[in-house]
């Protein structure tokens, strides 16, 4: 096998130099910036785009409103029976979410603590009806929720259950992807996984016929929590 230094120096030769170039100057990027007027428009555009992709979405201001929404969306499901472990969630959700689930008396299985063995955790997430997460950012232009991985969370929560519910504060919404990538860069080294989720799992692989939920969640829902507003 080729060693890295041989491999690299061969490339340098092909590029007409004996050793690799020094840190190249970044290229100037001049692209039009997508900008919205403020928090209100941002929330509206986000919801519009999220719903256009087939996601459910709503803005909530209080625990009561959250409870109402959850009942409406998931009331039909057997989420209130502890034995079924029907809801898996991150260790910590936004306060409004926590209190809504408490009010509803829907027990949450905290994914990171649900089992000692990783494969057992997967099995728990896979048999759940609903995965509940927070998010670090949202992107209005594309209708996207963005979440970093960390020990209190779990990537399978937004992946294995057939339904995924995200709680995100309106203050975390950004206009465009660039702002989010910039924010990630600013945190230093990125986490093991950053998931940008834009709607439900979809495929058009059979006769270009759009079909929802081939591997990932079939149904995706977002509750925007109106908090202190940005700008």
């Amino acid at each position: 096998m080729t060693t890295p230094s041989d491999f690299i120096s061969q490339l340098a030769t092909k590029l007409g130099r004996s050793t690799p170039s020094q840190t190249p100057d970044p290229v100037p990027i001049h692209v039009p910036e997508y900008r919205l007027s403020g928090p209100e428009e941002r929330a509206t555009v986000f919801l519009h785009n999220w719903q256009a992709l087939g996601g459910k979405g709503a803005i909530v201001k209080s625990t009561d409103e959250t409870v109402q929404c959850l009942k409406e969306w998931f009331g039909e499901l057997p989420l209130d029976r502890p034995a079924q472990q029907a809801i898996v969630a991150w260790d910590l959700l936004p306060t409004i979410a926590e209190s809504a689930f408490t009010t509803l008396n829907w027990p949450l299985v905290r994914y990171p603590q649900s089992a000692l063995d990783t494969r057992e955790r997967y099995a728990i997430a896979a048999q759940a009806e609903l995965g509940v997460t927070g998010a670090d950012w949202g992107i209005a232009l594309s209708g996207t929720v963005v979440m970093n991985s960390n020990p209190q969370r779990g990537r399978a929560v937004s992946l294995l259950p057939p339904r995924h519910l995200t709680f995100i504060e309106t203050s975390k919404l950004q206009d465009n992807l660039f702002e989010v990538l910039e924010a990630i860069s600013a945190t230093g080294s990125p986490p093991a996984a950053i998931e940008l989720i834009t709607g439900p799992s979809r495929t058009s692989d059979i006769e270009m016929d759009l079909s929802i939920g081939v591997h990932g969640p079939v149904e995706v829902c977002v509750l925007l929590i109106e908090d202190e507003l940005k700008d």
Partner: peptide
């Protein structure tokens, strides 16, 4: 590629998982 603003899943991975991460 598909006329999407972003594909359904854009995943930025910096593996392997951190030792205390619950999956990955």
């Amino acid at each position: 590629a598909t006329g999407q603003r972003l594909s359904s899943y854009t995943t930025i991975l910096t593996p392997p998982k951190h030792s205390s991460d619950s999956d990955g």
